[in-house]
Design a protein around this nucleic acid. Structure first.
Lengths: 154, 154
DNA sequence: TTAAATGCAAAGGGTTTGCACCGGA
DNA sequence: TCCGGTGCAAACCCTTTGCATTTAA
């Protein structure tokens, strides 16, 4: 009883149980990931790790991200700009809504996605992976402000 | 009357009316784009242009794609792998459905997307840009075959 | 002890840019 | 003629890889 442990301890144990190691660099990345809200690119994660430990090297970060993804701790997807993005795997899967005009991003939770997920399942037998969905368009403010999407400039 | 012209002629005229020029390189790219079904990455377009004209250079292709996007002839989005993709702007906007297991891709047409588009509009006031939507998941065959999505490997 | 992990430095791949020359209109 | 386009080559950015060294267990 009382198996409450910090996420650092949890991760450490999961790594060890697989014969993998708990290192200072991995701890740093974990700290950064926990603090990260939403999605972060690999490059950003490297930056943030450097803020904590200036000696951080990209290769270590990327290799650790691979490991963490295998463990299901993080998941990578692709943002509206096509750049690879990581996020701490949320308790609940969610997609993203991205405004092409103001750059704002919102989460699409499972409740909101139910209709979508169900319609693809029923019509196509297609199982949507919500965490990989990014819907681009114009948010309420921008669309009522009559903003255009980028790319139509002179 | 009788304003029917080949798309090459149409494009040529649109370019000229803007003070831009109709060049052999642009013609080559147009030919490639017309032949392209679905989505193509920039790099693929460069390849295909080279097949027609081995002297094709990447910079010209990318610069022309920018011009064509301004004209609304092509549009770029991002595929399931996050790579930038172009497609000839279809008469009808459509999104994409991508199977993470078999790599298959299908179009989501406006009819099918109506529910999605409407629900975001009603709940959020968000105007979805269907051509930027890529929904990832498992297609009927793959999900019934019990395939896993990549990334969960050991 | 010993295999995993790190750090470095270099490679890689697609896209972009600077600049001199070329060529449509 | 004149400005837009082209080609080349180098720059860029992020990510990956090889290899010798370090270090967790």
């Amino acid at each position: 009883m009382m198996s409450s442990a910090s996420s650092a301890e949890q991760l450490r144990d999961r790594l060890r149980s697989r014969g993998l190691r708990w290192t200072p660099q991995r701890r740093t990345l974990l700290v950064v990931l926990e603090a990260a809200q939403g999605h972060v690119t690999g490059a950003e994660l490297v930056e943030r790790c450097r803020a904590i430990d200036p000696a951080t090297t990209p290769s270590t970060v990327y290799r650790t991200l691979d490991v963490l993804e295998d463990l299901g701790i993080v998941q990578h997807g692709h943002g509206a700009d096509g750049r690879e993005e990581f996020h701490v795997r949320p308790e609940q899967e969610h997609g993203h809504l991205h405004c092409a005009a103001c750059g704002g991003t919102w989460e699409i939770d499972e409740r909101e996605a139910t209709t979508i997920v169900n319609s693809f399942r029923e019509e196509r037998g297609f199982e949507v992976d919500l965490s990989h969905v990014t819907v681009v368009g114009l948010c309420r403010e921008c669309s009522s402000a009559g903003n255009q999407q980028p790319g139509s400039s002179a």
